[in-house]
Design a protein around this nucleic acid. Structure first.
Lengths: 255, 255
DNA sequence: TTGCTCAACTTGTTGGTACAAGCTGTTGCG
DNA sequence: CGCAACAGCTTGTACCAACAAGTTGAGCAA
């Protein structure tokens, strides 16, 4: 029973009340000065405790408004279904999923050519710094930023399939377009990781402190050759990826 | 070009230097008082900036020692291989993976019976608060905490397969033991999520601020019935999950 | 009623001070 | 030589003060 610093006692007490649902009616927490009086601590000390809870992702703060318990609503991503689908750069799966969930999808899209980032060059087995085409999606659900998706194609593939480098949608989907040109995607290599967002990611996804991002990197292969690398960043607080494996089709519509 | 607060300017400048590799030799950062002089800011302001970088997972701090750039070493988890494996409660896959990577595996293990947590009860389709058997692993790599794995079995399954509730390993593996008793696992439902660790998780995994956890929840089915629910928490800074899908076997030994 | 101003609240930023606590190398005693 | 004590560095905790900036509702004027 070692003595904890006061700011940790504040954080622990508030955390206990939060998980016990003490603030479930209106999710507002007492103000810093109220807490300061209640815990007989200075405003700075209370702020340290609250900052801890913010960095744990338990609460948020807004200037002028106060602190709020963060809501826990998550959006399910059926990732295994993507396996059997021509991976749609025009966002078919995303549109369908979001609409089915009763939400409103919205996305912006752009195409550019640029030197491949190192982690992309490694996966595409091309020279570090060599050119690649980036097709980039910024996706929203109910006007809330949801994910960013960056798909890189190596330059050699563009020579054979020039429409990839043109701005605008490819109506039939990029996978079908590539297949029609003899490039068939036979498998994926998926990597899933998590970390705190970079400032750039925090800006695009409008996440505050205490919210990690979920990184999904899918490298698609045609024969031995990697033909594309898709890096998707999801808000960690609002997304969960699901995989169904084995004879389970349709058994898990709940949760 | 809106004016940023001074502590953000400090954080931005240091972040830029860190990603450019300015501290790559010894990973030590200048001390707070040095930075205070360099940026013409008070120690408190510099500390705010550094706290930001800590919460981004970019640096760590230790009392008496200073701030260090966090190392980026990650450990690859081949998750798709788990699909075709009797899921070993005795840690066969873990032991093999870690040993093959030239690391030293170590784990502690315990068994207990307790009321199922709500999220487990939901997945096992049992009454909230009803009893379940928990088989719990705490895994280390080179004496560093790596993951915790909690597998819950519903009480009805224990009546048919009592050894699950006994402490100690089941040598042939729980999946084989269950299969021998007529309970065959035909599929999984995987969920992958991320969030900041609870204080309990931070203690078990010895992670500091700015490191999220990767949550892997696997529900195993025998026919319609869920027979177990495994919740694994990984340190987000040291782990990455890989799935190989399609005709790719063995093509990705690098990275 | 409508719309504006402003007071009164909220958190955010920046400065200051003091001391506690952890680490390391030096010093000097035995 | 061996080792304990200490000085001098580091970050951690806790307090105080003042002002900036965002939000809301009261209240007044048109």
């Amino acid at each position: 029973m070692s003595k904890q610093p006061k700011y940790r006692q504040v954080a622990d007490a508030l955390r206990r009340e939060i998980v016990n649902g003490a603030f479930d009616r209106d999710r507002r927490l007492p103000s810093e000065s109220e807490l300061s009086a209640r815990f007989d601590a200075s405003r700075n000390t209370v702020r340290s405790g609250l900052a801890l809870l913010v960095s744990e992702g338990l609460i948020t703060s807004s200037q002028g408004l106060g602190y709020e318990v963060r809501s826990q609503e998550v959006f399910e991503l059926n990732a295994s279904r993507f396996e059997n689908l021509e991976f749609p750069q025009n966002g078919d799966a995303y549109n369908t999923d979001v609409t089915n969930a009763g939400r409103r999808p919205h996305q912006t899209f752009r195409v550019e050519m640029l030197p491949a980032p190192e982690e992309v060059a490694d996966r595409l087995k091309i020279e570090k710094g060599s050119k690649a085409v980036l097709r980039f999606c910024h996706r929203y659900v109910d006007d809330m930023p949801w994910s960013t998706q960056a798909t890189y194609y190596p330059a050699w593939l563009i020579e054979e399939s020039p429409r990839l480098a043109e701005p605008g949608d490819i109506e039939e989907g990029t996978t079908r377009y590539l297949a029609a040109r003899g490039i068939e995607q036979i498998g994926y290599f998926d990597e899933i990781a998590t970390r705190m967002p970079t400032p750039e990611e925090a800006r695009l996804l409008e996440v505050g402190a205490g919210v990690p991002v979920l990184l999904w990197t899918r490298t698609g292969y045609s024969g031995d050759r990697p033909i594309r690398c898709t890096i998707t960043t999801f808000r960690g607080d609002l997304n969960r990826m699901n995989y169904e494996i084995g004879e389970l089709a349709g058994r898990n519509e709940n949760t």
